[in-house]
Amino acid sequence: MREEFYKTLSSPIWWGTLAIAAIMPFVLSSYYVHILTLALVYVALASSWNIVGGMAGQISLAHSLFIGIGSMFSAALLLKLGINMWLGLVISAVISGILGAVIAWIDFRFQLGHLSFVLITLAFAEMGSIVVEGWDFLGGASGLLLPKDTGNFLAFQFGGGHGAFWMMLGLAAICVLVNVAILNSPLGYYLRTIRDNEKAAQAIGVNILRYKITAMVISAMLASVVGTAYVRYLTFADPYLLISPVITIEIVLFATVGGLGRAYGPALGALLLVPLGEILRGKLGSTLPGLHYFIYGIVVISVILVTPRGLLPLFERLWARWRGPAVAGKS
């Protein structure tokens, strides 16, 4: 079952894509590198969310908490207590993991249905944003400003532009690889069983609590780490961006547009939509603020109506149809 994962690891297409992506900063202007970096942030976030939302079928709207802990808390640790951001990254990830485990446990202990899970996680997310906006240690409503990025690697600095791009490329690749690994491991099969029929899964002896917690902890820790890297790239820890439930909604929509529960679906969604949104914002942001979100909304509604399983399966079908006649013609 793990062969698929090792096949991916040794696949030339994978490494080729990564290598081509890695030389992008030398080819593109810094504006497009910035857009690609943002796209990679969302590839990483959507992929990490996919472990819970796509594979286990639990629409968690609490991921803004994990991103928020990873970003706001590690920034606060650095600025208020002078704790190195590498250590802050680890501390935040551990806290996020614990919080994720608690949420998964609550879900299991109280037998929440799908709807209740969405609502409880949304309530947690709202609570998180209220706490951060009202707590000065985390910067309150005005946010925190990180010191300038001088490229000191030991202080979690990557030298802005190019360095941040490579950092994000690495993180996004790791998140997608984790998706591939889980999908092809027993854990992935258990999660999909839980998604498709929780009662039946329990009846055949799947330890639901254990796998739900495992999935949530992995997902939460990844989201937290990405949050830390994202805030270092942004330099400014903005509570209205990083711990607002809107960031989770964006991630959910990217994953849905790309293809839920697939290893490359969320990445595809983010890679298509983030550059589209950013370019629109760059061109029309001053005259029509909110246009890119408006377009995201339209795209997600159209995709759900046309191909509810997302774009990736649609592309696969088109590819198969395009190749189908050619193969038939040969024989």
Binding site: I59, V252, L253, G290, F294, G297, I301
Partner: peptide
């Protein structure tokens, strides 16, 4: 749920524009 979340983005930002 996801469809109405998308609709929410459309409405909110339509109003903003």
């Amino acid at each position: 749920v996801q469809l109405t979340l998308g609709l929410s983005l459309v409405l909110q930002n339509g109003i903003l524009m």
